[in-house]
Amino acid sequence: MKYSLAQSICWILTFLALALVPLGVGMAGSLPPGRDFGVEFGVMLGFLGLAVLSLQCVISGRFNWFGAGFGFDNLLEFHKLIGIFALILVLAHPAMLIAANPVFIAYFDPRENAPRAITLSLVTIGIVVLVATSLWRKFFKLSYEAWRALHGVLTLGIIFFGLGHVVMVDHYGEPLWKKAAFVLFTGAAMYLVVHSRVVRPWLMKRKPYTIIEVREEPNNATTLVLEPVGHPGMKHRAGQFLWITLGKSPFSMQQHPYSIASSPQNPKIELTIKDLGDFSRSVRDLAPGTPAWLEGPYGCFYHDPGTAKGAVLVAGGVGITPVMSILRAARDRRDPQPYILFFGNTAWTDVIFREEIEAMRAHMNLKVVHCLTAPPPDWPGEQGYITKDVMDRHLPNDIENYAYFICGPRPLLDLVEQDLRARGVPAASIHTERFDMV
């Protein structure tokens, strides 16, 4: 499902309303006497910090019922920025209180109240570690799996101890129903973490897959062909992605997102993975018969032929994978619509699916524009990156009637998306997918 502007605004208002729930609960019913603005503002920042942190569990939890129409890469970008905001709130909460009235420094003093001081210190240190390890995971030399485990544990710990802090301070916690509401709000958030880390893998256990083929591709890429075992498989739309876990158990921290390259008409799932790190390098050594667990499908990077005259597909390198799924689906359903593919690569030998794309041209209305930054000497096609000039030469005149799909490195996405917007293509017609989202 993709969102219209009205739906997007609804989701943003829902997020804002939810972020204000703990603050609203605190301010409901009978209230203690008011204090200085600085003190009250410090308290409000604390409520807001707890709420925003709790909502992070919904944003990042890959729930199709929350914001899926924005695209999960956009949601993750939003998650990252809101995480920094949560860090600022949680640090500003005691800072503002102490600045307004230095007596609040005693909240950190274990001699005054040990449990209160310990929970406060744990939350403060915990969120600094949570955000720092997320922003600079590689600097801290944390593997993706170790970071993912740490991220889950810290999130649960911070929300749990944050709730403990609210209950222990108890300034806005009376009568009892308010405390119950705080427990319910934060408890729901903590459940969502448990759901994505425990319940979801447990559900995946019923739908195993096995790798039946490992195929080498150009440009250090490998295609894994997966077959469902004992179930009909996954229903996906061309262009969507999934998370894959390899090995005997789906309860693994090693879970990675990849676009599905195969057509939805194909009962097998094909993933084409470029060597970009430890995990993606290891897939070429996998043996047929390796068990796999697939979570998904996710994403709104798919073409709905009824909504446009045709599709313009822009891919950089291995960004071709979801685009390939869209093309294979169009070929399989004998789609008469025009498709224009801009495909950027370094060298001709790097072009993944080169022969298959050429063969497709005989079966569908497909124009292919290869752009090579290091072309062979007699190269007749476009040279360099996919630029505005290249698009000028090959885009149709009625560009506003087409749907646009861009997948590749961030600079390509930014350049093409800005260019299309400048040409008057509606934002709703432009779909992007970043493959470096985690």
Binding site: R35, F37, G71, L81, R434
Partner: peptide, 30 residues
Amino acid sequence: MLHLYSRYLALAISMILLIASAVVAAWRSI
């Protein structure tokens, strides 16, 4: 379509929430 706007959206939401908290704090301190 939103990836160019994610950071602005996060900033706008953060500002709205901060202003809302400041308004509530101002009301409590009257």
